[in-house]
Nucleic acid binder design. Sequence first.
DNA 1: ACGTGTTTACGTGCGC
DNA 2: GCGCACGTAAACACGT
Length: 313
Amino acid sequence: MPRPGRNTYSDQKPPYSYISLTAMAIQSCPEKMLPLSEIYKFIMDRFPYYRENTQRWQNSLRHNLSFNDCFIKIPRRPDQPGKGSFWALHPSCGDMFENGSFLRRRKRFKVLMAAERLAQSKQSEAAHYLQQQAKLRLSALAATGTHLPQMSGYNLGVSQSSTFKHPFAIENIIAREYKVPGSLAFSTMQSMSAGYPLHNQLTSAWPHMYNTGVIDTVAPISMAGGDYSAYGMPLKSLCHGGQTLPAIPVPIKPTPTSMSGFSAMPPHIPAFLSNSPQSLSPTSPQTATSQSSPATPSESLTNSSSMQSVAVH
DNA sequence: ACGTGTTTACGTGCGC
DNA sequence: GCGCACGTAAACACGT
């Protein structure tokens, strides 16, 4: 686990929102996912300001985790006993702080945003996109099926082969504070968000998803019944209490409209395939994404979310 | 009992 | 002024 600088802000309140702080914590660990208690610990460890009035800010932080779509809750596996779930960053939240300000975001991250964009596009384009996604996903899944990293738990090592640094990576956030104290400039944010190593993040954040075979070359076919979300997870488990199932990233607040959006899916394309193929590609995002593809890897999950909401206005 | 997660409500500050 | 992001408080449900 990276050990960025400590005590950067003495006892002053850090110029970061709770969202930023939480994102830092999550990004600081190799698995890109942390239980709530570890997020607390991270913040208190690095920002002495938050060692006091814990009840207050921790309540606020929990509120942010639940309220903001940029955080996704990952249920524990049955063999991972403990309180609470893991929390991870939504892969598409990379441009939240595009203006470089960690005090105030340009716009609140909403899963539905991309859905609205797609809903505005022509239906034929959407269908074409779905077909392309399906092809890419199939090939990606076939490629990943046999050599996925064998990880059995949250604390296991994770391949960090990608040189990509998530915008929220502690290196990117705190390091800048070191270089330019007080400066909020974050000019490289956009370029970095364009190369999100989603595959790495998925394998690290949800290793058990791969280990349990939930994602393999067979799964897409077996999931064609429409009972699965765009994340390849049974819809029933999207509701609270799905913790007995393999931990798979799910939107925190799946709306009835997003669920019903599956009806807009072309019947010949399994719901699972509507997900981003690039997100599971073992190749680099750059190579996996063709120029004609409408989505960067960082956008792909958002677009997959949009698949759920094509019918939503 | 306590920690966790969700939701609602309200106030504040900022940008347009 | 308005809308939005953010912070805070509080109530409640649920799981360990």
